[in-house]
Structures are given as structure tokens and as C-alpha cells.
Write a protein that binds this DNA or RNA. Structure first.
Lengths: 207, 207
DNA sequence: ACCTCGCCGTGACATCTGTCAGGGGTCAGC
DNA sequence: GCTGACCCCTGACAGATGTCACGGCGAGGT
């Protein structure tokens, strides 16, 4: 901590300007951290990364333009030395797994104490994997996403409460097929309604 | 601004510790503002208010324990000089109306620039009403909540995707009555499914 | 008193949904 | 080549759902 070596260069991405700004000032108070760029959209992140030599990118999961997880994937694929730390409001267990698979170096929930954020950034920069303990446990007992890709598609289209006929058109499938996918999804989620199945899957980060 | 008179005493309430902490440091940087208390739950706010002589209470809408709007109502009813400034993630038009009716002195969305938050606090403290412009307009054209209390109850119980039989038990009504309420709600929302009606109503802050 | 509106209920009907039992197709792994 | 997933479709059936027409109740308003 007393080492005044090269500071850690951080990028902060969050769609809510107020939260983003607050986090930026919070991190900028730390002597060994500098926020070198901000983004309000996922695609902005990719545009900003090359020109700022970012060490750690703090990305929110829910963002317009590009999903936080997609951003992680893109960063990993880009070959840049930047390490991604995912921040999110809701602790959907499935998100942890997906984020890590996408190449994220850490996963922090927004209701962890503010003081620990800077610590997480430092540990990620040091090469560690940082994951919220409770979430990690949950994500282990939950197991992997049991839904097949098509089932996920159908459930996503169902989230708004649309009738099956509409869902079928949206996914370019026969109504019967949609009903079968839904039936299978309901079995896997232990529910008895497409609506319940959809929210159940969403709440676990399976969509 | 150069007036170094009595500082404004602020309370910050938000369930996400990270966001709350960030906002606190953000506000504490302003020389004329002091954060004298923090709360992570709605009911905590009421317990903290009497002992801290709070000028402005910054309350999030979505909080465990007690709704942000309920908190406003309680503050107004308490007779304390505290003025409430509501902050929220989503700009549901109906929330603005309900918050103001509940006695809130202002309404700020979380994607407004961070720099304006302190300004909003000062204006609220000065006795002004602060409302996000775009939201105010929306809340006017949307008009008031067309749903009757029972329709709201039924829709709330429907949000999770539960079948009508379960909803009926949850609300202590006959299945037929539930269907009628839903039918009426669907007509008012211009939808054709209880699921659609429920999300439509939620997205407008009618629940 | 009259009317309106919200509330709760009934019964009946057409339609939508969820389930089940089939069919055929692709593709990876053994 | 066989097996096992996953994918897509069909058809049929019981049960859930949405619509309509109806009656009764109580709380306002005029």
C-alpha cells in the first residue's frame, strides 16, 4: 500500500451516470488507482480500451449496446492485457459462471461494502480471481444451466407475457414446437406455467 | 456557493452498499454538504431521522423493509423538517406522481450526471421541487393510474407467472372474480394476456 | 331517491395452453 | 454403425384462460 509504484489504470463502465460518477470519484480517492476512462454503453468500452492502456476494466452486467458478459468475451479475444471485473446489481448465480467462462477475472455484487471495491480492483490487477463468496457457493450448488439454447430463446420471448402464437412467430417456430420447448423448460425448472418458468430462469441468470 | 453558512445535513438510503458508499463519498466532497447517516433499509431511515437533524433525505425507491415511497409518506406524516429526495434506477412515470403525492420534494433518476446530484440536494433544501424534466413530461402524458386497487392486487400476484387458481387463493377471491379483474386490466392496458398486462402495469409504475 | 362506480360473484362458451405419444432430421462420441 | 442429445414438427386431449352477460352489494355524488 505504501508502494507508490505505477498506479493501476482503471476503466469504469455503467449505464447509470449517477452510479458511474460516484464509483469513479470513490476509486479516484485511492492514491494507487486512476480512472482513465468512463463508458455508459458496452460498445463504448471496446472503443476506449486501445487508447488508454487500461489495467482493470470495471463493467456492469446490464448495459445497452453490449452485454457486460459480451464485453468480457471481447476483451479476452482482443489479446489486450486488460483484466475485467464484473459488477452487477442482482446476484444471479448463473451470471458468475457465464462471466468467468467469458474470461472475467472477478465478480462483485453491488451490495458489497464500498471499501472493498478498491481492494477487489487491486487483487484483480495482481492476478487473483475475485468472486463474492456467497455467490460462488450458490453458483456451485445451482449447477450449470440445464436449458438448451432453443429453450432459452423461447423463454426469453415469453418473458413479456406474450401468447404462444406471438412467441412462435418471434422465434420462427411452429406453435406446437414452442409448446414442447416450454413444457420441457417447465419440467426442468419445476414450474407449471410458462410465465413461472421464464421468471425462474431469468432469476438464475439462465437467459 | 461561497456562503460557508450552516452545512446541509444529508441522509443517504440505498440498499446496494456499493452504490450507497459511492454516493456518500461523492456528496461528502462538497464543502456545504455533510452525510450524517446512512441506511440500507427503508425502516432504518425512520429510526435514524430523529437523532440526526437531517435536512435532506436521499431515498432509493426499491428498498427492503419499507418502500422508498412509503418512507416519504412517513417523513411527511412525522412532522419533521426533513425533505425527501427520491432516487431511482428506472424512470417509471407512475412513480413520479406517487412520490410527489407521498410528499417527496424531488425525484432524480440514476442516469442523470453525477455532478447534478449535489445541485439537486441544494435546490431541494432551498425549498424547490426538483423533478427530472423528461420524466415529468412522460408522467403528464401517461396520465394517472387507471387501475382500481383490486386490479393492482391481482396484477401484482400475477407478476410471477402464477396460474389463476393460485392468484385467487393469494388474494382471497373467487377464480371467476380474478378473471374478471384481469380481463378489465387487460382492456385498460391494451393487452391480451394477464402476463402482458402485469408487465405493462409494472413498467409504468402502476403497481 | 337516483345514478354511477367499484367490488364480488356466477355460469357458460370459445379459445388458448400444457401434456403426451408419436414422427423424422442432424451431429458428436463410442 | 449404434446411441444419445438436441432439434423440429404433427395430432389429439384435458384443463386453464379470456370474454360476456348477468345480479347483488355498498359508497359516493347530484
Amino acid at each position: 500500500m505504501s508502494d507508490v509504484g505505477p498506479v493501476i489504470r482503471v476503466l469504469v463502465a455503467d449505464d447509470q451516470a449517477l452510479v458511474r460518477g460516484a464509483i469513479v470519484t470513490l476509486l479516484d480517492l485511492e492514491p494507487d488507482l486512476t480512472v482513465v476512462a468512463e463508458a455508459g454503453r458496452g460498445d463504448e468500452v471496446l472503443a476506449l480500451l486501445p487508447e488508454h492502456e487500461v489495467d482493470v476494466a470495471l463493467v456492469d452486467v446490464e448495459m445497452p449496446g453490449l452485454d457486460g458478459i459480451e464485453v468480457c468475451r471481447a476483451i479476452a479475444a482482443s489479446g489486450l492485457p486488460t483484466r475485467a471485473l464484473v459488477v452487477t446489481t442482482f446476484g444471479r448465480p448463473g451470471f458468475v459462471r457465464r462471466a468467468l467462462e467469458a474470461g472475467a477475472a472477478g465478480f462483485v455484487v453491488k451490495d458489497t461494502p464500498a471499501s472493498e471495491l478498491a481492494a477487489a480492483v487491486r487483487r484483480v490487477h495482481a492476478g487473483e480471481r475475485v468472486v463474492d463468496g456467497a455467490l460462488a457457493a450458490e453458483s456451485l450448488i445451482e449447477g450449470a444451466n440445464p436449458l438448451t439454447p432453443r429453450e432459452q430463446d423461447v423463454l426469453r420471448a415469453t418473458l413479456g407475457g406474450a401468447p404462444i402464437a406471438v412467441v412462435a412467430r418471434a422465434v420462427h417456430l411452429s406453435e406446437g414446437t414452442v409448446r414442447n420447448h416450454l413444457s420441457s423448460a417447465m419440467a426442468k425448472t419445476g414450474t407449471s406455467t410458462r410465465g413461472e418458468a421464464a421468471v425462474h430462469a431469468r432469476d438464475r441468470g439462465w437467459l
